[in-house]
Design a protein around this nucleic acid. Structure first.
Lengths: 357, 357
DNA sequence: TTGAAAGCGCTAACAG
DNA sequence: CTGTTAGCGCTTTCAA
């Protein structure tokens, strides 16, 4: 079927060794021979199988990428960063998604290891309590986490706690007092916890009372009535929502709009992630922005850096070990979904019935 | 480094053949032996290398995916569909992006073939005039195109001409007469051409004069002043824009908003693609929707179907050949970015100065 | 400059 | 039920 080096050798009238050399060390072979071999290669449309090479102990130049989902552009943005560097450096990417499911995470890592990837870039639900990552450590399998915010493992992320803290402080600076945090169903993730912690700290520092994060079913077409109620009615209804990610913010805004709420007039909204698309919205979505693409690039560099440093000597690696986790700076996109409390139509509790007028 | 079957054999005190059998045909080996081998496997943390297997002529269970970019969620949505089926069926995906660049397309296909993928799923800029696809045909390499709208090659897409036609007819039905089509910089793609053709046909059938597609620089932060001028001023300024994709529609809307245009009051907007995210916008984006996820799934099924049908006999394959390209139904999402002409504030030419008031 | 041959990890005849 | 062995495509000594 696909021609092998043998076919080429036969066609050219030389040995397979010569063909191999013609490919890998052209200068060591007689120009005339070289030319003949090249013609045979073209004639048969031969391409060397990486199998043989890898089998010989060469590097696979294959990196595994494990992401929760591509439905959230956050991960697509990271992947873009990774992909760009990978193709520039001649690496191949093997991609698996997990839908935030622990079993699928396990399976993905397992599968990729079988494929003999040289390293893994992954985003898992919870990095700290993940036995699989311990396995990787034990087996000396190189990996870098993206977005997972932990100091215990090699990772690249923003400081989720601080970022959330800064975001909520901004809301407070705009005069908001009743600020509620909304989280997706995967409230168990390490970053969700840290974001909530940041929220709590910002609230407490301002002398405000933080609330537990309200869980929202991400995929539902409508906001649950009880949730909507919680957001839109009562004397203590929130004036601002801090959403644990941008997609959630968009879903929530749609729900509020259907209830005749306007943003930011009736409710201020702050997201998290800094999706590029958020700037295209109307009004542009305020967000605590992570440099997603750059996170992908940084994860790549760290992985490849460690990969390369394996070769010569390991002490170099040990030197870098202290700074296992890399924290990239976040930014605040103030957007237009945040209003100062004084500008908000629905700020005073007694106007809340408006939404059901 | 990584343990091989030999290590396991040595550890267990059996031959490598027995170990291999223990893995691939457990029932053919003595339970006691089996148990010992299993313990050794666990102890050494052994996983069979796919290299050896593939080398033995086994299937690689590897599929290559080539996409223009992940920055446009259209492709991320397709990839989701593919990924779902792939992981369910035990296949691995190797992903490469091309940024719509012909050279990168070439390189991606080349690379993936070297990796011995069993088949390719790809979206290329222009399917009809693509020598690489001819190579694939010649070499019997299985592939399926996604979104590329051609009858000459195996493909899955919507009927881009008809879909555009239907979309523009809808605009006309809402009373619009001056409808302009906007296209991204890759106006050269097969689908962009077909979409424009559909636009032309719908216009002509209604006795209206179609215009050439106006090219927009997708990535620029602002609309070019000349473009903005074209859209917003003059007695013949358009009342509706048909954008060749949703992302472009969003960029254009942002540009118009900055010029104090409101959608749909001052301008109706129709996109193409049906991004899931479009429904989260305010107002929800009207769009000619392709079932992106389903396109990915269908492409997968066709590829695997043809892969499987290779095994027994090839005439089966010939039977299916007539229906090379699969056309999936499109839908119209009327959204709220389209207003009937009678409801539009800016409909009468003499109101156009409003935008610069 | 070229060829012969060994070996990478594994599976599958074939023998025992 | 288990072991021996050949061979998949390739690179790389080692000889010629």
């Amino acid at each position: 079927m696909t021609p092998t080096i043998k076919d080429v050798a036969a066609h050219a009238g030389f040995s397979i060794a010569t063909v191999s050399r013609a490919i890998n060390a052209p200068h060591t072979v007689n120009p005339v021979t070289l030319e003949k071999v090249r013609q045979s290669i073209d004639a048969l449309n031969f391409r060397p199988s990486p199998l043989g090479r890898q089998l010989r102990g060469e590097r696979s130049r294959l990196i595994g990428v494990v992401l929760p989902t591509l439905a959230n552009p956050v991960f697509a943005e990271c992947l873009q960063g990774i992909d760009e560097l990978a193709s520039a450096q001649g690496y191949r990417l093997m991609l698996m998604t997990t839908q935030y499911d622990a079993e699928r995470e396990r399976h993905a890592i397992e599968t990729l290891r079988e494929q003999r990837v040289e390293g893994l870039i992954l985003t898992v639900a919870d990095a700290d309590t993940h036995p699989l990552l311990d396995d990787l450590d034990r087996d000396g399998m190189l990996y870098v986490l993206m977005h997972n915010d932990t100091v215990r493992r090699p990772s690249v992320s923003v400081d989720n706690r601080l970022a959330a803290y800064d975001g909520v402080r901004m809301l407070i600076a705009h005069g908001h007092r009743r600020i509620l945090m909304l989280a997706g169903t995967l409230a168990a993730s390490d970053r969700a916890r840290l974001r909530h912690l940041g929220y709590v700290q910002a609230m407490q520092q301002a002398g405000l009372t933080p609330a537990p994060a309200l869980e929202i079913d991400f995929n539902a077409d409508e906001l649950a009535p009880s949730v909507l109620n919680h957001l839109t009615t009562g004397p203590n209804r929130p004036t601002a929502l801090f959403c644990s990610n941008d997609l959630l913010a968009m879903v929530v805004m749609r729900g509020l709009r259907r209830a005749r709420f306007e943003m930011p007039g009736d409710m201020s909204i702050l997201g998290f992630d800094g999706l590029a698309m958020g700037e295209l919205l109307s009004p542009p979505l305020a967000s605590v922005c992570a440099p997603n693409r750059e996170i992908g690039c940084a994860a790549w560099r760290r992985l490849i850096g460690r990969l390369d440093s394996m070769k010569p000597a390991d002490f170099d690696d040990a030197l870098r070990a202290p700074s296992l986790s890399l924290t990239l700076p976040h930014t605040l996109r103030e957007g237009a979904t945040i209003a100062a409390i004084s500008d908000m139509a629905g700020a005073s509790p007694n106007r809340n019935a408006r939404s059901f007028a």
